[in-house]
């Protein structure tokens, strides 16, 4: 018995830290979401999320996250597939993976600056398109501080994350599966439809969920890019924490709780899908 006590003492600092600076603060918000100012239990805060302003912020956030996750998956998959099975020289893989490791961590304020300098009103690409091809993208309705602008910016860390996760999965496709399918009469298309894509499906879906959560929780990039002109969830929450713009602190907790639910579900999907993919790959 004393032995068990001793053993637990070794992990006490960790649990104390996690409790104080991770679990309790989060629980506090979650509980606050279900309390009224008098501290009584209520569902009114969650009901309050149905206000048009909050619903539309969740809608645009989810839309941006879906778009950047989907495009990130497609482009990242194409690039990873090109390197793994596309017949390009082998030395490309190393630099691509290194670059992906860096770029997937290059979110935040500097990323916003980089895109303003590139696709802003006087950015390099904007100017070059106008000077060389006479295309004025801003006159055509493009705006960096918009849905597409934000999506395009998020892709800078979404695509590399996809490459980092999906490359090992693609390398896990055994050559024999392809050969077995071929010798059984399958065309390349049939092989992909009946074997490769179903095998990759859990990895793809899981990574999609992870990318979704990744962009849903991104604050700094969006804030530095748009200020508060685009009311996506994290930015609205940011403003709420700073200045109680919703004029109801508990509605703020409910909003934060909503964020946890969305990212939590997405991450849960990722974990479940990864477990499934691993079972197949063994």
């Amino acid at each position: 018995m004393r032995q068990i006590g001793w053993n637990w003492l070794g992990v006490l600092p960790f649990f104390a830290f996690a409790l104080l600076f991770l679990v309790l603060p989060t629980m506090n918000i979650v509980i606050g979401a279900f309390q009224n100012p008098q501290g009584e239990f209520t569902l009114a805060n969650l009901a309050g999320l149905a206000s048009p302003r909050i619903v539309s912020s969740f809608a645009i956030s989810i839309k941006i996250s879906l778009a950047s996750a989907l495009l990130g998956c497609l482009i990242g998959f194409a690039m990873a597939a090109a390197v793994v099975m596309g017949g390009v020289p082998g030395w490309i893989k190393g630099p691509l993976m290194t670059f992906s490791g860096v770029a997937s961590n290059f979110a935040g304020v500097p990323l916003a600056f980089a895109f303003i300098a590139t696709l802003g009103r006087v950015g390099l690409v904007t100017m070059l398109l106008r000077q060389w091809f006479g295309i004025n993208i801003y006159a055509m309705g493009f705006n960096l501080l918009s849905f597409w602008g934000l999506t395009l910016t998020y892709l800078f860390f979404q695509i590399p994350l996809m490459i980092l996760i999906i490359t090992p999965a693609l390398e896990g496709l055994k050559r024999e599966w392809r050969e077995a399918a071929e010798v059984l009469g399958a065309s390349t298309f049939q092989y992909w439809r009946m074997v490769a894509l179903p095998i990759l499906f859990p990895s793809l879906l899981g990574t999609f969920a992870l990318l979704f959560a990744n962009s849903f929780g991104a604050v700094a990039t969006a804030y530095a890019l748009t200020g508060s002109s685009l009311s996506i969830v994290p930015i609205m929450l940011f403003a709420q924490i700073r200045g109680d713009v919703l004029q109801d602190p508990h509605l703020g907790y409910a909003m934060a709780f909503g964020m946890i639910v969305v990212t939590g579900l997405a991450n849960l999907a990722y974990v479940v899908m990864r477990a499934r993919a691993e079972r197949w790959m063994q």
């Binding site: 991770l22 959560a213 604050v219 924490i241 934060a256």
Partner: peptide, 19 residues
């Protein structure tokens, strides 16, 4: 527990700190 910070957005954690 160590993976939780990837799930709970930083903004929510710091919100909890402030409260």
């Amino acid at each position: 527990i160590t993976l939780l910070p990837l799930v709970i957005p930083a903004i929510v954690v710091v919100f909890g700190y402030i409260r």
